[in-house]
């Protein structure tokens, strides 16, 4: 598989680029994870959130 080779040679071969990959990956992972868990929580609590019932009180 050529993809594995490309990934290895570009990202993992040098320690410096490996650490950079980890740091950038951590940033992306955190953002994505937060978005995902927020989305799950909000869709689970749909109808109970303040932004859903705000028009009743304003």
């Amino acid at each position: 598989m050529a993809l594995g080779n490309t990934v290895y040679n570009l990202l993992f071969k040098k320690t410096s680029s490996f650490m950079l990959t980890v740091a950038v990956g951590a940033f992306a992972f955190e953002r994505g994870f937060d978005k995902l868990t927020d989305y799950v929580w909000e869709s689970h609590n749909k109808g109970k959130l303040w932004r859903d019932i705000k028009d009743k009180y304003e």
Binding site: F12, V22, A23, F29, E30
Partner: peptide, 20 residues
């Protein structure tokens, strides 16, 4: 290379989660 890519993917993936 395939084998190393897999190994480093596992190591890098757990480092990412650990850092977060």
């Amino acid at each position: 290379t395939q084998r190393k890519a897999f190994t480093y993917m596992i190591a890098g993936g757990s480092s990412v989660v650990g850092m977060v």
